[in-house]
Write a protein that binds this DNA or RNA. Structure first.
Lengths: 251, 251
DNA sequence: CATTTCAGATACAGACCTGTATTTGGATAC
DNA sequence: GTATCCAAATACAGGTCTGTATCTGAAATG
């Protein structure tokens, strides 16, 4: 699976480079089908893409497809697995690399810069898979676990960051991670929708603002605030703004 | 178009309640088709829903459909129009009602509370339409304009809020509105994905935290911060974190 | 090399979906 | 009340997609 990859019938490529074993050949095919599917899904959506289009785009015929997957559903499953796995790894890498806030920010900034070119199709695919998972009651929990882990990795990075600055986080880091993670998603959406209203660093800048705000809040937690305010509807526990009441169950 | 609405053949309903004029009848049909489409799109996606399913769900046949729309594409257009229009109105209403921060927060809180029950399907539809618009080069700008207006309304509300507290916003309100708006989107996604990791007030709480953080930042803008930091990749204008450099072109 | 095996191509049958052309029956107009 | 009109139903012709069943030729095996 190294040289290779004229997208035509791969047998030709074989004779050129290296004889591929059957298994290698099969894996290559599978991978190319997944890749083709990813591209088409991003552009036309999962439901807007037929098996026929996928195999054509990959340079095969339907025989190859049904030899490697049970059907489109299973292919989407595989794709979803691959995709979320990669995202998780990226996030974990981030949490490993990030020592200080500034370091973390630098990583985030370059990450978003790299992604900017392909943000549209990347986000479209992500969204398609998200919707697909949302609609499959068996899939949603799996997706949720992956998402949770990504956020947990981010929470860890944040924890380090705060520790490095020796400021107390203004809320549980899990909550802050949730906020930051969500902000990244939401801003990416807006960037794709209205590219003129943001620039390549907007996401990173917004996150940086967030960080600095939180630091400021930690240093200067309670504004005067009209001391009254019966706070009518605020019963529950989880995302409470109040200061520090560390961990929830987050797995 | 008032009493009415047994979802069966509407002629029966007519005889029961009020004779509908032809035009009224037609509009009712159209509206019911749109409604049915919205529900099915949320559950199965635009491309996962056939015209046949739509008309069946609405209690008609394909004849009624093609009498009211040129095809599915045009129906989606109409739906998108309706949907974004309503969102815009909600946001504008918010900006009208909100005098103080606390007021604004209360509105937001109740808004998210009301929405929570139907958040999943609502977001699914929104996302479907977003993806649809994203893929149609003629549609994207239209969508962008709507989005921009919504954010502008929010920016206005924020401006009022800051003024009421007499704090200077830590960044252009347009930028803050972008952040807050995006945060709402992103958190909603996470809430649908992992309902256990957030509660009904999480979005509102997160936004409140954001507000309070910004206030804190305004009161206490520059932390010591390692005074060095060559700030390597930060050339552009738009979303800069730095303090106040008011308006962009935002229409 | 001869034989077996299997990845992928080809052929086919059934389901579904779209869009148009035609029909029907209640609303409108006189 | 009769004639007209039109919203919606019905009928039909084409197209596309899916999944399976069968075929083919190159790799594996000896």
């Amino acid at each position: 699976m190294d040289t290779v990859s004229y997208p035509t019938a791969h047998q030709e490529a074989i004779t050129i480079t290296k004889r591929l074993t059957r298994q290698q050949s099969r894996e290559l095919t599978r991978e190319q089908l997944l890749q083709a599917a990813a591209e088409l899904f991003a552009e036309h959506g999962v439901n807007g893409t037929s098996v026929e289009q996928i195999v054509e785009h990959a340079g095969y015929t339907r025989g190859a497809f049904y030899g490697n997957f049970e059907g489109k559903h299973q292919l989407v499953l595989a794709l979803l697995d691959q995709h979320t796995q990669r995202e998780l790894e990226e996030m974990q890498q981030l949490s490993l690399d990030a020592g200080s806030f500034d370091n973390l920010m630098e990583h985030l900034r370059s990450w978003y810069r790299q992604r900017d070119e392909t943000l549209g199709s990347w986000l479209a695919l992500r969204t398609e898979l998200w919707l697909y998972g949302l609609r499959d009651p068996e899939l949603l929990p799996v997706l949720a676990v992956r998402e949770r882990r990504s956020r947990a990795a981010l929470a860890q990075a944040l924890e380090q960051g705060f520790a490095a600055r020796s400021v107390a986080p203004p809320a549980p880091v899990e909550f802050l991670a949730l906020v930051m993670y969500s902000l990244g998603d939401g801003l990416s959406i807006q960037r794709v929708l209205c590219p003129e209203d943001s620039d390549i660093d907007t996401v990173a800048n917004a996150i940086e603002l967030l960080m600095r705000s939180w630091s400021a809040l930690s240093r200067n937690p309670a504004p005067a605030e009209e001391a009254s305010r019966p706070s009518p509807g605020r019963p529950t526990t989880k995302g409470r703004t109040p200061s520090i009441e560390k961990p929830e169950k987050n797995p």
